[in-house]
């Protein structure tokens, strides 16, 4: 079964008195249920725009995006997805416990199950001790851990994580790998973007590389390992090979 299906997606941003800017054009790919897929690209390649379309935050100018067969952004699709945005600054006047309570209420989790689930998740991401401290007293890494906890709240079948390891120290990254591996064992599909290629290599079954809004590589991580020494080497060669104005850049 397909967890994500992106068909001929074009995402455009309208600007006053000028042509719309296409962040993504004609993008097609799919993610099978249970897979862990890394979504890679240089800054401005169109990763976040694609993720926003998958979440239904940005309507496609063209094409179709579906999540488990439901239209992206529909209530049915949202019930199955957990989402971590890139560097969200959770309300500085709330504690992690209160923040999680808000998201649990919005998700429809209530009763004794809510408290148990929240504490369990805060323990899993390693910020349970800080549950009653205000968010403004937490470091960037701790806020990222809180973000991961809120994404896991509804026991999602699909996790969409944008720049998942942003702000995390080596211990945080190790803990994140543990959490994602546990989710893999539970059968959760994970679709994430990251600039940390070591992380991607350790976690992913498959990678997609997007460049200038177009998909340039879709490959299994094992096949990449067979052909080059590291994912970083592979990524750089792919991306630089697709830079059209090579001489201009050199100049």
């Amino acid at each position: 079964m397909l967890a994500i299906s992106v068909d001929n997606l074009t995402v455009e941003y309208r600007r006053a008195f000028s042509k719309p800017l296409a962040a993504v054009s004609g993008l097609s790919f799919s993610v099978e249920a249970g897979e862990i897929v890394g979504f890679l690209g240089v800054n401005g390649a169109g990763k976040t725009s694609t993720i926003k379309a998958v979440m239904g935050f940005t309507p496609p100018a063209e094409g179709r995006v579906s999540v488990f067969g439901f239209e992206a952004g529909s209530i049915q699709a949202k019930r199955k997805v957990g989402f971590l945005p890139e560097t969200a600054m959770y309300s500085p006047y709330l504690t992690p416990l209160e923040t999680m309570n808000l998201y649990a209420d919005l998700h429809g989790i209530s009763g004794p199950e809510k408290k148990v689930r929240i504490i369990e998740l805060l323990e899993r991401v390693g910020i349970c001790e800080k549950r009653n401290a205000l968010n403004k007293q937490l470091s960037k890494g701790m806020l990222q851990r809180l973000g991961i906890a809120q994404a896991l709240l509804g026991s999602p079948e699909l996790l969409v994580l944008d720049e998942v390891s942003s702000g995390l120290d080596p211990i945080g990254r190790r803990d994140l790998r543990k959490v994602l591996n546990e989710e893999r064992e539970r059968g959760t599909t994970v679709f994430f973007s990251s600039h940390n290629l070591g992380e991607v290599e350790l976690l992913c079954d498959r990678i997609l590389i997007i460049h200038k809004g177009k998909l340039v590589v879709e490959n299994k991580i094992e096949e990449i390992r067979d052909s080059v020494d590291s994912l970083e080497e592979y990524f750089v060669s792919v991306v630089e090979g697709h830079f059209e104005p090579t001489l201009e850049r050199a100049a």
Partner: peptide
């Protein structure tokens, strides 16, 4: 501005 609208709208709410 805090980018917390994303996790709010990612919930099953309209």
């Amino acid at each position: 501005s805090r980018k917390t609208l994303y996790p709010l709208l990612a919930r099953p709410i309209t």
